[in-house]
């Protein structure tokens, strides 16, 4: 007898949360999911607007067997991976210095975080001004006699290895990882290291066995974000990369914008492959990271 109102209340409570989430969830599902669904459809050859109604995998076979696609995929992966690893390592190194109290440590910490609110596009322009062969560094080096002409400066921008792209990403992402690590270090305090120290751990051992395990979860989650971001980033490789090879997002957008609408299903196929590869890599990375932390 008493169970009926109880059950009713439980059902009501159970429904409350989904109902409250519904508006936000609906927006995401319709706009994001809808977009993916349309893209998936086009990549599979379903594009009624230009008279394509047959489902086919031919776009995927075309894309995946194209040698240029694989070159772009490798470039995209390499840029994302190098950025992720380097930004994590550099951020750890920087924060270890920054948390020490030294003369000017406050201003240094501030400068370290300056890149955070700067848009990626601005960062890219800055890099161009700085390190192209006609850039500031090349001119200064020539002026002080380190080089004969600015053209002797190595081609870092518009180069096939994507050095300028990686540099721009690093300039933006190192402070991001650093911010997370600094927050962890602040909440943890020096006490664990002091405890380890009285137990006989030297500086290297304290870093390896105490500090690193404490900050690794934070580094792992930010590095996943960075990998996903750089892997799919469009504007930086477009601005700072060479025409060929381009990263996959650039290739996909170029084909998407092509006046020949028949290229669009291929662009969609590239995007879907990009997304799937990114997801697979992230899953693998998480697995690896978890076992590494343990």
């Amino acid at each position: 007898m008493t169970s009926t109102p109880m059950t009713a209340r439980r059902i009501r409570n159970g429904l409350k949360i989904p109902l409250m989430l519904a508006p936000a969830l609906g927006l995401v599902v319709v706009l994001f999911g809808g977009g993916i669904l349309v893209g998936l459809g086009q990549s599979l050859g379903y594009f009624p607007a230009i008279g394509l109604n047959e489902f086919t995998f031919s776009n995927y076979t075309t894309v995946l067997t194209d040698r240029n696609f694989l070159i772009s995929l490798w470039l995209t992966f390499r840029i994302a991976a190098v950025t992720t690893v380097l930004s994590s390592v550099l951020a750890i190194a920087f924060t270890l210095v920054l948390r020490e109290k030294f003369a000017g440590s406050k201003i240094t910490t501030f400068l370290f975080q300056v890149p955070l609110p700067v848009p990626h596009l601005v960062a890219a322009s800055g890099i161009i001004l700085l390190i192209t062969q006609s850039g500031l560094i090349a001119r200064i080096a020539t002026a002080v006699g380190l080089m004969d002409t600015p053209a002797d400066f190595p081609a870092l921008v518009f180069d096939k290895g994507g050095v300028a792209i990686i540099l721009t990403f690093l300039w933006k992402e190192v402070p991001f990882v650093g911010l997370v690590i600094l927050a962890i270090l602040q909440s943890v305090g020096p006490q664990y290291e002091e405890q380890a120290r009285t137990l006989g751990a030297n500086a290297r051992q304290r870093f390896r066995h105490v500090l690193l395990p404490l900050i690794m979860p934070g580094v792992m989650s930010t590095s996943i974000i960075i990998f996903a971001f750089t892997f799919a980033n469009y504007e930086i490789p477009l601005l700072l990369g060479v025409r060929f090879p381009s990263t996959l997002p650039v290739v996909a957008f170029r084909e998407y914008q092509d006046p020949d609408l028949a290229l669009r299903p291929q662009a969609m196929a590239i995007s879907i492959v990009l997304a799937v590869v990114a997801i697979l890599l992230l899953i693998a990375y998480r697995r690896l990271a978890r076992s590494a932390v343990k």
Partner: peptide, 12 residues
């Protein structure tokens, strides 16, 4: 500290 052999048990 790490070679002194004075081991501390902290309050926390």
């Amino acid at each position: 500290t790490e070679r002194r052999g004075a081991v501390m048990v902290f309050q926390k």
